[in-house]
Simulated assay, not measured.
Amino acid sequence: MPLGELDWIKQLLVCPRCRSTLVAKPGGLNCSAPACPYHAAMTFPMAGPWPVLVDFERSVVNREKVVAAAEGAKTEGPEPAGLVHRLPAPLRRVWKPPNRVAAQNVDLLLRSLLGPAPRLLVVGGATVGNGVSAVYRDPRIQVIGFDIVGSPVTQFIADAHQIPLPTGSVDAVLAQAVLEHVLDPALVVAEIHRVLKDGGIVYAETPFLQQVHAGAHDFTRYTASGHRYLFRRFEELAAGPVAGPGTQLLWSIDHLVRGLTRSALAGRAVRGLMFWLRTLDRLVPPSYAADDASAFCFLGRKSDREMSAQEIIDYYRGAQVPA
């Protein structure tokens, strides 16, 4: 995988509080700005191989838990593969089919990146997402990955509300199934806009009709219009449902069974048996899918122009149009 080398990444990193350069100190990294609290009084620790660049005073991320989890990942290795990954390939594709929407949009993103060694930032990149593996196979791309946990495909630990990278430092950003897990998605999108170079590309997928799937770290859902307005400072290149009403129904049945049986395993089992509901997505016209999708995607280019409130009203593409 074309992951950027950690030594090179460290030269690029900045303080999440004031965006000044960092200096190596015993036990971690410190901010170089004398007025910053992270200059001397506090240090950004190292947790295993990962620098932990979180402004803990302004984040829900807990310092002790993050460091302990990273140290555990270093000593114990990656977590064992889940049930889905242990299934034979044909069954795995039935249980979790390939995300063709992501694959198509990632292909567009990669073809839009010109010049030598473009930098692509993966926000919330502790795992390689469904449909985006081409990013890690393209030899041209320098991938920079971070999450609030360390993993083999991340180079540092950070909070997406304060991305520890300089302004205009990356050519593209990938944020798949991330924005529902942050407290302030608008702030995270503003940070994505900031770190992108002029004309940089963003690809994001965010749920609309999905049940809670990360416990206490699941906060937000977006309609198609709401998702577009979240990225109002970007020119749209592509947008639409990632999965439609059939997939959304499958989520609901899974969680209904969980509630009735008090068993997540029972819910997953019924979900596996009713996998065919996903095929109904193909029968629903795009306008109806826009009102009842499981999730939406957005591919856009950084712009100096901001979409207006009236424009987002006119943007609506669903079936509920006044007669």
Rank of each mutant, 00 (worst) to 15 (best):
N30L: 10
G200D: 03
K96M: 13
L13N: 02
Y315L: 12
P245C: 06
S308T: 15
R268A: 13
F156Y: 09
Q320T: 09
Q176A: 11
R119I: 14
R232H: 11
R317Y: 00
T154D: 04
G77S: 10
G48W: 02
V284S: 06
P49L: 10
L280P: 03
T154N: 06
G199W: 14
L250F: 02
P97T: 03
G272D: 02
I201Y: 04
A175V: 04
R194M: 05
V128R: 09
L109S: 04
G131S: 04
A216V: 15
Q142S: 11
L179M: 08
T261I: 01
H217K: 14
Q11E: 13
A103Y: 08
T75D: 09
L121M: 05
P51A: 08
V66I: 13
G124E: 02
Y136C: 03
H227C: 13
V94F: 03
R258A: 01
Y316S: 10
Q211G: 04
A81M: 07
G200N: 07
R17E: 05
A134L: 08
A214L: 12
W251P: 01
L29R: 01
A309N: 04
G300F: 04
D107T: 15
A216E: 15
Y38R: 12
D159Y: 02
P45D: 01
T167E: 08
G272L: 01
G240S: 06
R194C: 07
F44I: 08
L283Y: 11
S294F: 15
V84T: 14
P139S: 11
P116Y: 08
A238L: 06
S225V: 14
F208C: 13
A289T: 14
E306Q: 10
V178A: 03
P49M: 07
C18N: 05
R258P: 00
V153S: 04
P90K: 08
W95T: 12
V257F: 03
L29E: 06
A319M: 10
G48V: 07
V143M: 11
G267C: 02
Y288D: 01
P245Q: 06
E191C: 10
E180W: 05
L187S: 14
A24E: 15
D218T: 06
P166M: 07
N105R: 15
S20I: 00
A175T: 08
V173F: 01
R19K: 15
L29N: 08
D107P: 00
L6F: 00
G300I: 08
W95Y: 15
D291Q: 07
L299W: 05
P78C: 03
Y136W: 12
R17K: 14
E76W: 03
P286D: 12
S308H: 00
V195L: 03
T127N: 05
Q211A: 13
T220Q: 14
S59H: 05
E71C: 02
R317D: 12
L237G: 11
G4L: 14
T127E: 05
I148C: 07
V128P: 02
V178P: 03
E71H: 06
I9M: 08
A68E: 14
Y288P: 00
P78E: 15
H181G: 11
S133C: 00
E5W: 01
L13H: 08
V173D: 05
L299K: 06
P88A: 07
M274D: 01
G124Q: 09
F296T: 04
E71G: 01
L196A: 12
